[in-house]
């Protein structure tokens, strides 16, 4: 039996637990505290997350990759003017600014089944890292099911609910918004997907279904895409979303 008061001693069988999870386990201890090496790792991860919060969307880069899908692409902005304001005014991040709203209205887009919206949320890095790869699986599947897609939109400084306004103005039956999630220490670039049936301004969380933690180390692109496809199909078929629609797709989660 080894004394665990020295950090190196979190070893053997205990340490092997780490093969089962990325959680910070088998850290050892010095007295009651975390060993210094781990303490500094933690600070570094926090620094990465802070940097992700302040990352920004590159419209030119995104547009370039999304052209592959042969859909019109419309860049939009919320009512937010700065990152500091974004962090303190969620109300303004849920609504399009006037010129963006006018722009969508003037598109007079034909009625569609699904509007796909991309927004930075709390990690523009997540959109840059994962949105294209996810859509590369999902969009062909939606198209082969004969679903009509609205123009793709990219919203700067947006919150989840901004998808409702965009979906409404595009006259889509359902909105799917991809958004950078609140960065975690081990996941500065995790992507979330929210589905709303009959999007309209003023809906709240119980009207939505969520697929979260989309990234290679979390929910893979292919499983995420299958889940989203299932939820979209069921939502359109049953004409509901949110707490009334559960994920019974039988997929391993």
């Amino acid at each position: 039996m080894k004394e665990l008061s020295h950090p190196e001693d979190a070893a053997g069988q205990w340490k092997s637990l780490r093969s089962f999870t990325d959680a910070r386990i088998a850290l050892g201890r010095t007295g009651n505290s975390v060993p210094l090496k781990e303490s500094l790792h933690f600070k570094l991860a926090h620094a990465h997350a802070r940097d992700a919060v302040y990352s920004t969307l590159s419209l030119s880069e995104l547009t370039k990759s999304l052209t592959k899908f042969n859909l019109p692409i419309t860049p939009l902005q919320s009512q937010i003017n700065s990152r500091q304001e974004y962090l303190q005014r969620p109300d303004l991040g849920k609504r399009l600014n006037k010129s963006s709203a006018d722009q969508l209205t003037s598109l007079s887009s034909p009625a569609s089944d699904v509007a796909i919206i991309l927004t930075d949320g709390l990690s523009a890095k997540a959109i840059h890292d994962h949105a294209f790869h996810l859509l590369d699986l999902l969009i062909p599947q939606l198209q082969s099911s004969k679903l009509q897609l609205a123009p793709l939109t990219i919203v700067e400084q947006g919150r989840v609910a901004i998808g409702d306004e965009v979906g409404f103005l595009l006259q889509a039956k359902l909105s799917l918004i991809l958004i950078g999630e609140r960065p975690g220490l081990s996941s500065p670039n995790s992507l979330g997907a929210y589905i709303t049936y009959h999007p309209a301004i003023g809906l709240t969380d119980e009207s939505r279904n969520c697929v979260s933690n989309i990234r290679p180390e979390g929910l893979s692109y292919s499983v995420a895409s299958q889940k989203i496809f299932y939820l979209i199909s069921e939502s359109l078929r049953r004409k509901v979303a949110g707490v009334h629609l559960k994920d019974e797709s039988g997929l391993i989660s």
Binding site: A23, R24, R182, G184, N213
Partner: peptide
């Protein structure tokens, strides 16, 4: 929470070590 880092909910809470500290 292991190492104060919840890898599912993406936030920081208190760790097993924090509880040891408080007990002590």
């Amino acid at each position: 929470v292991p190492g104060a880092d919840d890898i599912m909910l993406n936030y920081q809470s208190t760790s097993f070590h924090d509880a040891l500290y408080l007990r002590e």
